[in-house]
Design a binder for these strands. Structure first.
Length: 297
DNA sequence: GAGACGATTCGG
DNA sequence: CGAATCGTCTCT
């Protein structure tokens, strides 16, 4: 058993050293969960050979203060975490429809277990408003499953659908959240292809096919309910939003949301938004684009 | 513990 | 356009 550690206290180091000799029959996963309990401020990931500990933001601060900022280790941590670039609470704390539009052009960054940035530009979103929006999971109120929708703006809400995941970000408003429907892949595209190929081995993927759907983007960026649901994206070291391209309002198509046939009078509300002409959008709405073009002229 | 269902995806 | 496939909810 090998331990990779970036920053832990002397007390915790002692605890970890005592667990490095793995008893026969004890899995690395159970040891990882023991460490996770002890280090409640750290993210602990394990496989059969290693345990990896990623510092959370408060620990990054202490690293910065206690180390020479020019050392390569500190530099590396700075580059791979959200410390400087992640949007804060004020970005997310706005009405759902505003956040859905504001997210277009911004970058979604997922720092993988290997410390690699999986990143794409958001090109399509949907707003789900909470009660009385009959399309929203939160329409009937808070449950175990949808609790993240009621948490602070900037909280990730990840749910399962037909054995896939979809990802939302909570906005201002009770039970309101924005569904991320499509990304244009930007960084480490070969790694995203590998992640997609876990499901469909051997299939070749063009870049624009990787994240052109709400579950496809979760597969490509390794967004799972286990890892990401209820994560605070203003503080998370696993997932956050960074600034990206400026999108002019007249390039945003407003149209009906997808696959909410049960939502009655809410079916036709124009709560889906996408960047006109972007190749990664999951479904085009030609009628809505006509309206959009007329408006421009 | 069975049965139904879904803000999806893939292949034919 | 139908099947896959699985976590969650509901009812027994």
């Amino acid at each position: 058993m090998k331990i990779i550690q970036q920053q832990i206290t002397e007390d915790n180091r002692q605890f970890i050293m005592s667990t490095t000799k793995r008893p026969v029959g004890k899995s690395s996963t159970s040891i990882a969960s023991k460490i996770r309990k002890k280090l409640d401020s750290s993210d602990v990931h394990s496989d059969s050979k290693t345990i990896k500990i990623t510092p959370k933001r408060n620990e990054e601060q202490s690293i910065k203060l206690s180390n020479d900022p020019n050392t390569s280790k500190v530099k590396q941590i700075k580059e791979t975490t959200s410390a400087t670039k992640a949007f804060d609470y004020t970005f997310y704390n706005r009405p759902c429809e505003d956040l859905a539009k504001a997210l277009l052009g911004k970058k979604l960054v997922r720092l993988s277990d290997k410390g690699e940035r999986l990143c794409g530009t958001i090109v399509e979103t949907e707003a789900y408003l909470g009660h009385p929006d009959k399309g929203a999971h939160s329409y009937k109120g808070k449950t175990n499953k949808n609790e993240a929708m009621f948490m602070d703006p900037g909280t990730a809400y990840v749910y399962h659908i037909h054995s896939y995941c979809c990802m939302n970000i909570s906005s201002k408003g009770d039970g309101a959240a924005v569904l991320l429907r499509a990304l244009e892949p930007v960084e480490n595209i070969p790694s995203m292809i590998k992640l997609r190929q876990k499901r469909t081995p051997g299939k070749p993927f063009k870049s624009h096919e990787l994240c052109n759907g709400p579950s496809k983007l979760c597969l490509s960026l390794d967004v799972t309910k286990d890892q990401i649901n209820k994560d605070d994206m203003t503080k998370s070291t696993k997932i956050w939003i960074e600034d990206g391209d400026e999108i002019k309002p007249d390039r945003i198509v407003h149209c009906k949301r997808v696959n909410i046939n049960y939502a009655e009078e809410w079916i036709d509300k124009p709560l889906r938004y996408y960047i006109q002409g972007n190749k990664c959008v999951s479904k085009l709405d030609k009628e809505a684009e006509k309206q959009c073009n007329m408006y421009i002229m």
